[in-house]
């Protein structure tokens, strides 16, 4: 019985005492907000960067390429610190917005590449066939290229999302109380961190699984084989 007593005590200290569970929930909320907002910003900016690569203007193409090379090669933590301690040092902006900007900027560089390679995987012959059938350029893109590119991009994009969820765990460095930071704090307070770290891992796993389920739902219905 001793063992169960220990576990119970540990759970109580880490989760219940001092409303720790509410603290954990608020950390989870912060993590989810940064992830979703960062993903949104990253996708919009990524689409824009991708579009720039197909532009006629050499300058736009150059800007897009350079941006991708530099930002993709910069560790997200350094980017975060650069924004927090240098760029927005004097503004009173909430750190959480800075985190969203940082993940948006970083995510865009990856997502632009994902989109570009997905678009390039679409067979140009099919686009040509659509044009010959009377589709306009946009009609062919919307009906043929886009749906197929989405299929190609899905698994890679899913990967990027799960990566992003995990990378948000570094925002504690700029004073944000996200899930990881909260778990760290609780562990430090109770001096019995094993239980709460274990719970933290489970929550991150849950988030990744939720992302997987959402992607699964958007997947085209499996074809009925003959």
């Amino acid at each position: 019985m001793n063992f169960f007593n220990t576990v119970y005590e540990s759970a109580y200290n880490n989760l219940i005492a001092g409303d720790s569970y509410l603290y954990i929930l608020s950390g989870l909320k912060t993590t989810v907000i940064i992830t979703l907002a960062g993903l949104f910003a990253g996708s919009v900016l990524g689409a824009l960067l991708c579009l720039m690569q197909y532009s006629e203007s050499k300058i736009l193409r150059f800007i897009s390429k350079t941006y991708i090379v530099i930002v993709r090669g910069t560790p997200i933590l350094l980017l975060l610190m650069l924004l927090f301690y240098v760029v927005f040092a004097k503004s009173r902006m909430d750190a959480i917005y800075i985190a969203i900007i940082a993940f948006g900027l970083n995510g865009a560089s990856h997502i632009a590449e994902i989109m570009k390679s997905a678009l390039e995987s679409v067979d140009s012959g099919q686009v040509m066939a659509a044009r010959a059938l009377g589709f306009t350029k946009f009609g062919a893109f919307y009906n043929i290229t886009l749906p197929q590119a989405c299929e190609f991009a899905r698994p890679v994009y899913q990967n990027a999302v799960i990566n992003l969820i995990q990378w948000t765990s570094v925002v504690g460095y700029i004073t944000i109380a996200d899930l990881t930071r909260v778990i760290n704090n609780i562990g430090a307070r109770t001096a019995d961190p094993f239980f709460v770290i274990f719970i933290g891992i489970l929550i991150y796993l849950g988030l990744a699984y939720a992302a997987y389920l959402i992607f699964k739902m958007t997947e085209r219905k499996k074809r009925v084989r003959r």
């Binding site: 099919q126 040509m128 066939a129 659509a130 010959a132 059938l133 009377g134 589709f135 043929i144």
Partner: peptide, 29 residues
């Protein structure tokens, strides 16, 4: 685009729309 409607084209490597079923391929345009 209007004149192309009068012309059907068939290619060496078929160029069927790979994300659509046969019937969808035919009725799309």
């Amino acid at each position: 685009n209007k004149i192309r409607l009068k012309m059907g084209m068939v290619y060496q490597n078929f160029n069927l729309f790979s994300h659509l079923s046969v019937i969808e391929n035919i009725i799309l345009a």
